[in-house]
């Protein structure tokens, strides 16, 4: 079947099989490998993308379901050559180590600070509790999201 989807702002048409998972579509068909795969059970969240601005686990959505919708990935965070506040904050606060969960964490963080630009430690932890990280112990991820929120607030 054919689908039309806007990926990181660019309209695209692709021929797909109904069973193709969105994550495979994003990685293989659209060629955006910043979105990763870490489990089979909708547990780890490293496949997170924004579907119409809302973070979802792309391993648990069929590509067919994004027909007529918008998908944003880590590759779309930067705009006009400028890093997104969340990207700068993850580096500044050492919010990543191996970097495998990082695109997902940043997308969740970016969507979250649009709703809450002054979050407490607990609020951030709750917001990212659908995403696993094995390296950092989360503390610097939380700090990075709070720092990005602060920058958002200042805008």
């Amino acid at each position: 079947m054919e689908i039309s989807v806007k990926i990181n702002g660019t309209p695209q048409k692709h021929e797909i099989e109904p069973r193709q998972l969105l994550v495979d579509f994003v990685r293989s068909t659209a060629g955006l490998t910043g979105t990763h795969i870490g489990c089979d059970t909708t547990s780890c969240g490293v496949c997170t993308v924004l579907l119409d601005g809302v973070p979802v686990k792309s391993c648990t959505v069929f590509a067919a379901q994004v027909d007529g919708h918008e998908v944003a990935t880590v590759e779309g965070l930067k705009s006009n050559g400028e890093l997104h506040a969340i990207q700068k904050a993850f580096t500044a606060h050492h919010g990543l180590q191996c970097g495998f969960c990082t695109p997902a964490m940043m997308l969740v963080g970016a969507a979250f600070i649009e709703e809450n630009d002054n979050p407490s430690d607990d609020e951030v932890r709750w917001a990212i509790s659908g995403n696993l990280c094995r390296c950092t112990g989360y503390v610097n991820i939380v700090k990075a999201i709070q720092a990005a929120a602060e920058e958002r607030r200042a805008q």
Binding site: T42, P55, V56, T60, V108, S129, G130
Partner: peptide, 9 residues
């Protein structure tokens, strides 16, 4: 219910 991302969908 589940986790925040699963709740979104």
């Amino acid at each position: 219910v589940a986790d925040p991302l699963v709740r979104n969908r």
